[in-house]
């Protein structure tokens, strides 16, 4: 909150600040070009800071072992060691783990979209008593550290015979996630009430309104939910580790470590799997990003 405090002061002193005198019109165009250039330079600076570690991963995955540890660092390997990838994929059951990961990712995405949109509808488009109180409860559940409920959860799943299956990783996603409920609720609130009301006049039920009116309008935010859920399930490590007890059900994020031997970790191969796990998501994100950003709303002014 430190960041916001100075801002608060600025806000309070706003009336004291004199608006700067109007600049000359001629300068404006030059100014604009100048501004754009400045934005570009800063963007490129920041972007390189963000991309360098990933570039390092990428180049590391193509290096020979002597290049990996060269000092000063080698940025672009002399010969691309594509064999690192081949070796990485064959040193653990990549395809099997990839398949398992996809299954989990797919069903959790479906679960997240289905359950959270229903729930968010109940928290935004229907007025009922205690609604906002219950919603605060939803937000409170965001704070639970997984480690604490991990063991009791394990016991529940064990009692219903789910340990060693994908169910513990999938089924809970069909029962809502506070983060998604919040995002969707904000979006739904922004959809004009009149749409629902006129449908109600025509005798539509809440479910019909939800399916026919709200959902079709909500694709951008649903895309957001899909992406976030995708990434979460794609990277999850502790969940699969605890709940899966069969190598054949393992996911990629668990398998990555299998490359490392205590007595001979193969760094380049590890980097290769890291790249292989990251690239597909980057591509998906690239295509979905526009809807993704459109979808998130805080003020409810979109729709």
């Amino acid at each position: 909150m430190k960041a916001s405090l100075p801002v608060t002061n600025h806000m309070e002193t706003r009336p004291d600040i004199d608006p700067t005198p109007e600049p000359k019109k001629k300068l404006k165009k030059v100014n604009k070009g100048f501004k754009q250039l400045a934005v570009y330079i800063m963007l490129i600076l920041f972007a390189s800071a963000f991309v360098v570690p990933f570039f390092w991963l990428l180049s590391g995955s193509l290096k020979s072992s002597s290049e990996l540890f060269a000092n000063p660092p080698v940025w672009i390997p002399e010969v691309f060691q594509w064999s690192n990838y081949k070796e990485a994929f064959t040193s653990f059951p990549f395809l099997l783990y990839f398949k398992n990961t996809l299954i989990i990712v797919f069903f959790t995405c479906v679960g997240a979209v289905m359950s959270n949109s229903l729930i968010a509808y109940g928290f935004s488009r229907i007025e009922w008593k205690y609604r906002d109180g219950v919603f605060i409860l939803v937000l409170a559940t965001l704070m639970l550290p997984f480690q604490v409920i991990m063991v009791p959860l394990f016991l529940i799943f064990k009692d219903i015979g789910w340990i060693g299956t994908f169910y513990p990783l999938i089924i809970p996603h069909f029962f809502g996630n506070p983060f998604f409920i919040f995002l969707l609720r904000q979006f739904f609130i922004g959809i004009p009430k009149e749409l629902s009301e006129s449908a109600k006049m025509d005798g539509a039920s809440e479910l019909t309104i939800f399916l026919r009116i709200i959902l079709p309008l909500s694709k951008p935010i649903l895309a957001t939910v899909v992406i976030f859920q995708f990434i979460e399930a794609w990277r999850d490590f502790l969940g699969p580790l605890i709940f899966l007890s069969d190598n054949r059900l393992y996911t990629l994020s668990l398998g990555v470590q299998q490359i490392m031997s205590e007595n001979d970790p193969r760094w380049a191969l590890l980097m290769a799997v890291g790249v292989a796990m990251t690239l597909p998501v980057i591509i998906i994100f690239f295509f979905l990003q526009r809807y993704f950003i459109e979808g998130i709303t805080f003020t409810g002014s979109k729709g």
Partner: peptide, 30 residues
Amino acid sequence: FRVVFFIPTLVPFVVLAILWIWILQPDSGV
């Protein structure tokens, strides 16, 4: 640019941790 800023959130944890040990290496890190 948007994709660039989002890439890092996609790297798996184990790889990420090792990557950063490497990057912040006091002696020869990037």
